[in-house]
């Protein structure tokens, strides 16, 4: 048997090759299966239409709200967001879009015309017309949606980022 490729050698080689092919054919999908959630693009970001321009008169705070649906595996979670649009002039790009989520602990603030302020129901926080802190515990002014645009059919859209 010296030097020649015998039956036992053939069986060994065939076992190694077939085993290797099966190992790769199963191993690669198995790894893809495991890391699949890490390879998914986050669907959190995107342009969200919030309001028609014509519904937001200049100089008036107009509330809006929208819902984002988050899909994690087989679970869908929807979260509501809200805010106020304030057009400062006729120029469609001259506007302020505030998030109505209080910067203290995340309650929703409401614009009160008589107080001329955003009031938070939770801890009496008070924000001014531009979202600046007037009174109460909030550490910083109301968040702004600074990336916005007006679409061709007259919709105000904001670029929504998660978090």
């Amino acid at each position: 048997m010296s030097g020649s490729f015998g039956r036992r050698d053939f069986i060994k080689a065939a076992t190694a090759i077939v085993g290797g092919v099966i190992g790769v054919a199963l191993g690669v999908p198995a790894i893809a299966y495991l890391i699949d959630p890490a390879l998914r693009a986050s669907a959190k970001e995107g342009w969200v239409p919030i309001l028609k321009v014509e519904d937001a008169p200049v100089g008036k705070l107009v509330p809006f709200s929208f819902t984002r649906v988050q899909v994690n595996g087989w679970e869908r979670t929807s979260t509501n967001f809200g805010g106020y649009v304030l057009r400062k002039s006729e120029d469609p790009n001259d506007m302020l879009i505030l998030n109505s989520r209080c910067t203290h602990l995340g309650c929703t603030v409401n614009w009160k015309e008589d107080a001329q302020a955003f009031l938070c129901p939770c801890h009496d926080a008070k924000f001014g017309r531009d979202g600046e802190v007037l009174d109460g515990p909030p550490p910083k002014p109301l968040e702004r949606f600074s990336e916005f645009r007006v679409s061709a059919d007259g919709l105000i859209e904001i670029f929504f980022k998660a978090g």
Binding site: P29, A30, A32, Y33, D36, L39, G73, W74
Partner: peptide, 9 residues
């Protein structure tokens, strides 16, 4: 339907 190669496993 959702996971890569889940149908195979």
């Amino acid at each position: 339907n959702g996971v890569a190669f889940g149908w195979l496993i």
